[in-house]
């Protein structure tokens, strides 16, 4: 019984990690290439979820909703880049944080104005309903397995994009020397817009996928954004590989902590006390891990800048 529970929790951790990777990959890409801290990344996640819920409700198909979420997030991302972000590249990080924080407020209230404050309904597509049997006798939700699959596919796709294509070459060049590739005649403005839209689309995809599991509502992006920042700090800012490893570490540590800590504490104290203290400790566990990793590797596990 305990092994099946452990396997199920490991899969849960992996699924959370994969979802965080979709968020963190865009965030770290944007930081790596343009040196921009984008706090509004969580809002793009929210836009993806709202677009998916709205289109799925109108057409009856989750899949069309998923495509809409990619398009909407990428579209809004591109508009934001051209209208606002472009003016921020030469400013310092504090200005960027202020401006993108303003974007969070504008996008959240905009979404509230358009869709109202009550959560929207978005269900898992019929093909992915229900649970499947795991080897060893356990059961696992099919949709979560599908999310893990999507995450692995996106990770592989990003790897190929960055290592094998011309766009990827420019992204890598942009990461190592921004001025130089501009001087070599690459249209840096278009490159930035494309990278920003790509990151936004990944966030929108994450929002749509998770929206079907959770509730689609205003403000859903901010808690995920905080975790995504923990991920890129652990993984090393600007590194996609770091984002992947960091996301899996955060996902697994968070899930395992929530599950194991209260049971461990229950060995030494009364059950109700153990659950309260265990829950409190579990919620800070990922930050403890982050502090430990930073103590030994101050620039993260795979820093792109080193």
């Amino acid at each position: 019984m305990f092994t099946t529970l452990l396997i199920e929790q490991l899969l849960n951790g992996l699924q959370l990690g994969v979802m965080l990777f979709l968020m963190a990959a865009g965030l770290t890409l944007i930081f790596g290439v343009m040196g921009l801290i984008n706090l509004a990344h969580g809002s793009l996640y929210m836009i993806g979820a709202f677009a998916c819920a709205t289109v799925a409700a109108a057409t009856g198909s989750f899949w069309i909703g998923l495509i809409a979420s990619l398009a909407a997030a990428a579209g809004v991302g591109a508009i934001i880049e051209v209208a606002v972000i472009r003016r921020l590249y030469d400013r310092d990080h504090l200005d960027q944080v202020l401006a993108t924080f303003a974007l969070i407020l504008i996008l959240s209230e905009g979404a509230r104005w358009l869709f109202g404050s009550f959560p929207l309904y978005l269900d898992i597509p019929p093909q992915l309903q229900g649970a499947v049997a795991l080897p060893g006798g356990g059961q696992y939700q099919l949709y979560r397995l599908a999310i893990i699959g999507v995450g692995v596919a996106v990770a592989a796709g990003l790897y190929l994009l960055i290592s094998r294509t011309r766009l990827g070459m420019r992204i890598r060049a942009g990461e190592s020397d921004r001025e130089m590739i501009g001087a070599l005649g690459v249209d840096i403005g278009t490159l930035y817009t494309v990278v920003f839209a790509l990151g936004a689309a990944l966030a929108g995809l994450a929002g749509a996928l998770v929206g079907a599991l959770q509730s689609v509502q205003v403000g859903m992006g901010e808690p995920v954004l905080i975790l995504a920042f923990v991920v890129i700090v652990i993984g090393g800012i600007g590194s996609i590989k770091g984002a992947l490893v960091g996301a899996v570490i955060v996902g697994v540590v968070d899930t395992m902590g929530r599950f194991l800590l209260p049971s461990l504490l229950a060995l030494t104290m009364p059950a109700s006390q153990a659950t309260t203290i265990g829950a409190a400790l579990a919620s800070m566990l990922i930050y403890v891990v982050m502090a430990l990793i930073l103590a030994f590797r101050p620039s993260g596990l795979f820093s792109a800048q080193s």
Binding site: M1, F2, T4, L5, E8, Q9, N12, Q15, L16, G138, Q139, Q141, R144, V210, L213, Q214, S215, M220, P223, T255, R258, F259, T275, T276, A279, S283
Partner: peptide, 18 residues
């Protein structure tokens, strides 16, 4: 006891199952 504002309950549901 879960976190206030938590949105993913996979870890808790696994414990319920077990």
């Amino acid at each position: 006891y879960t976190q206030v504002g938590q949105t993913d309950y996979a870890a808790e549901i696994a414990q319920i199952r077990a």
